[in-house]
């Protein structure tokens, strides 16, 4: 185990000398996926609660497909599947995008966490106390202002505990990136295993790193909940 830490320590943390690897890569995947997911989820959660079937149905379908299938299958469809289609080869921009492992990984992760986050935010919006909406209406708020000032701030706060769970699950899902040749923590652990035939030590180092990131995230979200949900404290 000492040998593995000495040889692969730097690669596990930030770089193998050429590229960003290990913890740095895992955190980058996590942040990129969560930003894409969040930006998708806020508008989609509003549309998800629309009165009109034609608006509601496509978002429901998106959530149904992406929460009903494993992320690994989604990654395979986007990474190996798309590239097997004929027309992708003929469009230079598409060709370049789908050939790169990390682009496909971030796209797949972002779409996946976007679907789960949409469901979380849509649930929080549905649970908004209707008295607040009535009060805002009686003060003459327009619908966009109602969402911006009343519904979204309160719904996003109330969604925070569930959303923090989703971020932790996303961290756990980033391990799949190594199947698309992205050098995250697990890829380095796998390399260390292939070189030393010591699976226990190699994967234990990875497990400890992931556990540290998880605990840091949990701690950070606790602090954030204390700040943003202070009104719920008794």
């Amino acid at each position: 185990m000492i040998y593995i830490i000495q040889t692969y320590g730097k690669a596990f943390l930030y770089s193998d000398g050429y590229n960003m690897t290990g913890v740095a890569m895992t955190l980058w995947l996590l942040v990129a996926a969560c930003i894409i997911g969040f930006c998708l989820a806020v508008p989609l959660a509003i549309v998800r609660n629309s009165k009109h079937f034609l608006f509601r149905a496509p978002v429901w379908l998106y959530c149904f497909v992406f929460t009903g299938t494993p992320l690994y299958v989604q990654l395979l469809v986007i990474y190996t599947g798309m590239y097997s289609l004929e027309f992708v080869h003929h469009v230079p921009s598409l060709n370049q995008f789908f050939r790169s492992g990390i682009d496909c990984t971030i796209l797949a992760f972002g779409l996946n966490t976007g679907a789960y986050t949409t469901e979380i935010f849509a649930g929080a919006i549905r649970d908004t106390n209707f008295g607040e909406v009535d009060a805002a209406r009686s003060l003459g708020y327009s619908t966009p202002k109602l969402y911006r000032r009343i519904i979204l701030p309160s719904a996003l706060r109330r969604a925070l505990p569930v959303y923090s769970n989703e971020v932790i699950l996303m961290l756990h899902s980033t391990t799949l990136a190594f199947t698309a040749t992205v050098p995250d923590i697990l890829k380095i652990a796998n390399d260390a295993y292939s070189a030393t035939y010591n699976p226990f030590a190699s994967f234990t180092v990875a497990a400890i790193l992931y556990a540290c990131i998880s605990f840091t995230l949990i701690f950070g979200f606790r602090k954030a909940e204390g700040h943003f949900l202070a009104f719920q404290k008794r």
Binding site: H172, T175, L186, P199, F200, F203, T204, A206, A207, Y210
Partner: peptide, 20 residues
């Protein structure tokens, strides 16, 4: 511990070590 570590890491850890 189990809930802090990704399931794929645990799976590879247990699968390869269990055999040894």
């Amino acid at each position: 511990l189990i809930r802090a570590v990704p399931d794929l890491v645990l799976m590879l850890l247990i699968f390869y070590s269990l055999q040894i």
